[in-house]
Simulated assay, not measured.
Amino acid sequence: MLCPVEWVSAGVDLPEGVDLIDQRILPHEFKVNHYADVGELSEAITDMVVRGAPAIGITAAYGVVLAARQAYAQSADKWRETIEEDLALLMASRPTAVNLQWAIDRMRGLFASIQGDPEPVLLAEAMSIHDEDIAANIHMGELGAGLIEDECQVLTHCNAGALATGGYGTALGVIRTAYKQGKIASVYACETRPWLQGARLTAWELQQDNIPTTLLTDSAACHLYSQGNIKWVIVGADRIAANGDVCNKIGTYAHAVTARHHDVRVMVVAPTSTFDLNARSGQEIPIEQRAEEEILNYSGVKIAPENVPAWNPAFDVTPADLIDYIVTEKGIIEAPNSGNVESLFD
């Protein structure tokens, strides 16, 4: 199984730490970077070496292990105080993906009970978070596939596959399972500007599994829906509010609006760690604004005139009433709203 993040033991030339597949250079080059310093790992999250809310959360959990190692080496008695600066650095690395904060909070919850060296206890917890994510993805794949009745074509946006999770994928987990069951004939993948996660990552993942995939520009999706061949839009999520509003990669909202107009159903697939019950609606979810250069340049070449600014939000919010189903490892929410989201966590 493809895993974008992995804890590896010490080798001849490398200390024990975290391996990340460098997703910035896929599919043309497959490279694994090794991190044993929490500062460098935080920078890797910001720079999108690793991306996807669940994968970011798992990486952050391993980052807490590195931070604890460094803090304990500085002061065995005061490591709990020393570590907080590095945890703040991790927390700030990507502000929208709530799995990051969830993972750090879960790891921090063990601090008070730890005696002696914190690394073994924290590493075991981080590995549990990783294992739980993979198991959740496989289960969500089965649940989501169960919603698809007949063989059809589907569309996905961005990358919510193995590369965005601990392994197997959320949206692509459903697609993988449904394809094996003969319920999906082929997949359309939107390129997903400006980082082209759909073109570079989703198309590559599906190709590895021999799932028929067609790439299209983001702006071509509306025309595709109008042809009547797409029956489902299946996407992941970076944060889900208490009322069922879904924050996901920029462009998801436009898909949901057009899908509703053309009677195409929308399925969001995400673990419960992606829910933020403190956010009453999507309006309370912070939207990451990324650098203008990501829009003004392409592959290092400037494509816009000088002195033209760019607006580059990384995510948008799809209102709950445009979503047919949210699939989680705890069950399926149909026509999400505050009531049935709350019931999921009772």
Rank of each mutant, 00 (worst) to 15 (best):
E81H: 04
I287S: 02
P118M: 09
D263G: 06
A199S: 12
Y168N: 12
G173I: 03
Q208V: 07
I134D: 03
C247Y: 08
I240G: 03
A256S: 08
E29Y: 12
G11K: 12
V268E: 04
A304T: 15
A76C: 00
I211V: 11
Y35G: 12
K231S: 12
S226L: 05
P271Y: 06
L155C: 00
S343V: 04
Y72Q: 04
Y35S: 08
L296T: 15
T213D: 08
D209N: 12
T318K: 03
D86W: 06
I332E: 02
A254G: 10
I184T: 03
V327W: 13
I326T: 08
I285Q: 02
I175G: 01
A314W: 02
M267K: 03
I148D: 03
Y72W: 15
R80I: 04
T177P: 04
D245N: 14
L143V: 02
V12D: 14
I25C: 14
L122I: 13
F315A: 01
P4S: 08
A36D: 14
A256V: 00
D324G: 05
R239S: 07
E119A: 13
A241L: 11
Q197W: 10
E119V: 15
A67M: 06
C158R: 00
I58G: 01
G169P: 08
N159D: 10
R24H: 05
P336W: 03
G339N: 13
L215F: 04
I240N: 09
R24F: 02
M1P: 14
Y62Q: 05
F275V: 05
Y168S: 05
T202W: 04
A254R: 09
E334G: 11
G146K: 06
V174R: 02
S299T: 11
W311V: 14
S9Q: 15
H139V: 09
V64D: 13
G236C: 02
A259R: 00
L155P: 00
L206I: 02
L122P: 09
D209Y: 14
Q289E: 14
A259C: 06
F111Y: 14
E84Q: 11
G63W: 10
E119F: 10
I138G: 07
M107I: 09
L2M: 14
K302Q: 14
A241E: 11
K302I: 02
D117V: 12
Y188L: 01
T202A: 07
I56C: 09
A199D: 07
C247L: 11
A270R: 01
A68N: 10
C190P: 04
A304S: 15
I332R: 01
S226M: 06
Y225A: 07
G146F: 03
N99G: 10
A112P: 06
G198W: 03
V18K: 12
Q23G: 15
N210I: 05
A53G: 12
A53E: 11
E293C: 15
N278H: 15
F30W: 14
V98N: 10
Q153K: 05
I250S: 12
P27M: 09
P15G: 05
S75M: 02
T46D: 13
G52S: 06
P194Y: 10
L41N: 02
T165C: 13
